[in-house]
Design a protein around this nucleic acid. Structure first.
Lengths: 198, 198
DNA sequence: TACATATGTTAGCGTCTCTAACTTTGGCAA
DNA sequence: TTGCCAAAGTTAGAGACGCTAACATATGTA
């Protein structure tokens, strides 16, 4: 990405910019990211991105879309090979959620905060639904169902709020700030069980 | 705030700027907020804030501190008059958390995202601990204890993650984006009970 | 009443996003 | 093979922003 190119044309500047943006979002956070920085990283002028993106937000949106794809893959990998609907599968799904949030906090923050900027971007919404679908089908299987009824929705949503909340508390460093020591695995395991119970 | 002043001196520019900043943070979000906008709202030059704050971040930090104070008051009000440690008190505390997040999403976002910018600001941390202390003592009372042991910490933290996660899913409009309809009161009540059980 | 200090102003630097106008290049039709 | 068009770069610059330096004014106190 930082390598000097010899050609006038870049080859695949769009992809290069997305990757540079992704890295910068992780380094500095989505709000501190600047288009100019991404240009320097990609070795092009500050006007070049506007051949590929309408504006700064659209660059972030591209990173978001790509990140959600990776998120999907990770979560699929977490449940793969485990008995569908088993406590272990649902627990591992939660752990994969946390793992993504903590390993890519910038992209995670972007993915969940961007809705209000590019409100209702169809692709992002669709990816979101697909990601959430993994949890829904696991919870349905846990309850011995083949379709998503209200009870499935309720329990799945409760699990989502828990791992989502924990993710933010972790990446915003509230656990350390509050002097809490926490075994994440135990916390997720116990509360997954509690939220699915009864 | 927008009123023209006739004097060279403002009276209490610091407070005026904090209020203008708070409003702008709600209107545009913490990342879109600009010092220049706050100056226009307060009717002063763009250099004036630097007599009261070191930089932009410090203005946001002031809004954050004031917001956390209000957050504390709201949560205190939620449990006041209820039997300490009752399910109702803990439930209402959760509802107060959600209510603050949804009524002041900008300040809420600021309060929980700012740690990594001004890392370890002593005052913010202290306020955070004080706020969390309300929940801790309620959960301790629920368990019939007078001190905060490990079990209290575990259950309180689980409750925190739930309302925190729900808050973000609400203000980031994920519930509507995922086409979920949700009775927040029921959701909080049922899962508070589940997380405190056994 | 004088003056030190706090608190405002104007001017300006460097940076940022984004646009307009120009340039280079690769691919395709004749 | 050549000529031309569209795609994808460039430079230059407008307008906004954060922040600083130098200057101006008001206020409280000796």
């Amino acid at each position: 990405m930082t390598g000097k190119r010899e050609n006038y044309h870049h080859g695949d500047l769009r992809a290069g910019l997305v990757e540079a943006t992704r890295q910068l979002v992780e380094e500095k956070g989505p709000d501190r990211f600047s288009v100019a920085d991404a240009c320097r990283a990609a070795g092009v002028s500050t006007a070049a991105p506007y051949r590929h993106f309408n504006d700064r937000d659209e660059m972030l949106l591209a990173v978001c879309a790509e990140g959600m794809e990776r998120f999907y893959t990770n979560m699929q990998g977490a449940v793969a090979g485990k008995p569908p609907g088993s406590l272990e599968a649902i627990f591992d799904l939660g752990m994969a959620y946390i793992a993504f949030a903590t390993s890519e906090p910038g992209v995670f923050r972007l993915s969940f905060g961007i809705a209000r900027e590019h409100e209702k971007d169809a692709e992002i919404i669709e990816r979101g639904k697909r990601n959430y679908g993994i949890l829904l089908s696991q919870v349905a299987a846990f309850q011995g169902k083949t379709e998503i009824d209200e009870q499935v929705l309720d329990r799945a949503f409760a699990l989502w709020t828990m791992v989502h909340g924990l993710s933010f508390l972790l990446i915003d460093e509230k656990i350390t700030a509050m002097d809490l020591q926490l075994n994440i695995e135990t916390m997720i395991r116990d509360n997954t069980r509690r939220l699915l119970a009864e």
